[in-house]
Amino acid sequence: MTRITYIEHDGTRHEVDVEDGTNLMAAAVDNGIPGIDGDCGGNCACATCHLYVADAWRSVIGEAGSETERDMLGFADGVTPASRLGCQVTVTPVMDGLVVTLPLGQH
């Protein structure tokens, strides 16, 4: 299990322990965390699991990798260099302690 902290747009924190091998979208949806929609179910096709990786973690997580993720992120609201799509980040033990924040506009 790997500990992930999700911070909603209004500052509400959610610390959850998630299975390795899952992704940051599915882990949030499974734990009922508001602010991550995951409308397409993890197909990198809707950009409703947009999140921001905390600065200290950006080198670990890396930037948007695939062309599809970059395309879809391009249509999301409020994109910054820290933006990723949660469904495209697979959780591994090196991410223990990871902090991500969620944008305005997701439910």
């Binding site: 929609d37 995951g38 409308d39 397409c40 179910g41 197909n43 096709a45 809707c46 409703t48 879809m72 439910h107």
Partner: peptide
């Protein structure tokens, strides 16, 4: 929310 009405991609 897992519906197709808005399309995907």
């Amino acid at each position: 929310r897992n519906h197709l009405s808005f399309g995907f991609g």
